[in-house]
């Protein structure tokens, strides 16, 4: 019972939630980029709506809310660890490689979170028919969302280096 109220237990709990949400988010991001997008052109035309109408909306739900909970738990975790402000200013003036590393990772993650909620999701809403759009607008929206998703895949590599590697700094 003592452990349940101990600060360290809550630290572990928030860290666990942060990692689980992050797996949900980056797992879907990599699914889109490594599996779905390269496979779509190979799927017979009559079967494509199965992906676009059923799998994509569901995957986008877990993807964007995974991103939201990752950043929420991440910020709480940094605050509980006492380095939130130092990480926001990427450790400048604090002579801490640890806070610089986690700070750069946090900023990369924040850019990715912004891409998800303010570029990918609004454009995908046109693509899956939630926001009304003309065929030309849908084409532009799909291209924009696709590129932002690729940017996030690129950024996920250094972001994960910072997150996983921070304990070595």
């Amino acid at each position: 019972m003592q452990e349940l109220v101990a600060f360290d237990w809550w630290l572990l709990f928030v860290r666990w939630c942060h990692i689980a949400s992050g797996v949900m988010w980056i797992g879907h991001l990599w699914y889109f980029n490594f599996t779905q997008t390269p496979t779509m052109p190979k799927i017979p035309t009559e079967l494509r709506p199965g992906v676009a109408k059923y799998i994509l909306p569901e995957a986008l739900f877990w993807f964007r809310w995974g991103a939201m909970f990752t950043i929420i738990f991440g910020l709480i975790l940094a605050w509980m660890n006492g380095y939130l402000w130092s990480a926001i200013k990427i450790g400048i003036g604090d002579h801490s490689t640890h806070n610089t590393a986690i700070g750069i990772g946090m900023w990369l993650g924040t850019i990715m979170w912004f891409n998800v909620w303010f570029i990918i999701w609004p454009n995908q809403k046109k693509n899956i028919g939630i926001t009304p759009a003309s065929p030309d607008e849908i084409k532009v929206a799909a291209r924009t969302a696709g590129l932002a998703s690729r940017v996030n895949t690129m950024l996920s590599i250094p972001m994960l280096y910072c997150m996983a590697g921070v304990h070595f700094y």
């Binding site: 490594f34 990427i90 490689t97 690729r150 950024l155 590599i157 250094p158 280096y161």
Partner: peptide, 30 residues
Amino acid sequence: MKNPLDSLGQTIVLGFVLTVVVVLLIHAIA
């Protein structure tokens, strides 16, 4: 010129290049 992000392979390579930049940045700042 083709956008390198249209290729998954080039996206991954760019991700690793960016990681090297981040490592150098960590040591330069701290």
